[in-house]
């Protein structure tokens, strides 16, 4: 067995230190070692987007990153989107029936969070392209696009204090 490495990072603003095998993915690290199970695994080869988290503010596939690589980084997960209650993006998803089983939802939310940071007023087509790397098998996407439009409007009106980043 390969030598284990100490990994120190912050997750949703909290310091975390664990000893891990180099091969452990960041996704498994978050789910098993940090016990934040909101980050989901749908494919483990970078296609489905369910495991999307923020790494130093940028969206990444946590299944395609080893935990050792995140040493020293800031990681944001769905659990950190809002301190209590729901983030405006989460509220918009609720209002617009933009989730069904909820399995893709955490990755979807992190992707939307990134999109709206960079592009506060996206068109429906831009939203659809931005979500193209997040598979939702339940909704057919229409309601998610509605929710992102609504969240964008809400965030333009009243940006929240950022928790995850």
């Amino acid at each position: 067995m390969a030598e284990r490495h100490v990994v120190r990072l912050t997750v949703n603003g909290e310091s975390v230190e664990r000893l891990v095998e180099p091969r452990k993915t960041l996704a498994d690290f978050l789910r098993q070692d940090v016990e934040l199970t909101g980050t989901h695994l749908g494919c483990e080869h970078g296609v489905c987007g369910a495991c999307t988290v923020l790494l130093d503010g940028d969206p990444v596939r946590s299944c395609l990153l080893f935990a050792v690589q995140a040493d020293g980084a800031r990681v944001g997960t769905v659990e950190g989107l809002a301190h209590d209650g729901l983030h405006p993006i989460q509220e918009a998803f609720h209002d617009h029936f933009a989730l069904q089983c909820g399995y893709c939802t955490p990755g979807m939310l992190m992707t939307v969070h990134d999109l709206l940071q960079r592009s506060p007023s996206p068109t429906r087509e831009e939203i659809r392209k931005a979500l193209a790397g997040n598979i939702c098998r339940c909704t057919g996407y229409h309601a998610i696009v509605d929710a992102v439009e609504a969240a964008a409007a809400r965030l333009r009106a009243a940006p929240p204090r950022e928790a995850a980043r």
């Binding site: 909101g38 980050t39 997960t77 659990e79 989107l81 809002a82 729901l86 909820g102 399995y103």
Partner: peptide
């Protein structure tokens, strides 16, 4: 509106792998 959403949106779903 769905009664199921709150937990799922907050990453507090309880799937088997959790």
């Amino acid at each position: 509106k769905r009664v199921e959403d709150g937990r799922l949106l907050a990453g507090q779903g309880r799937f088997v792998d959790d």
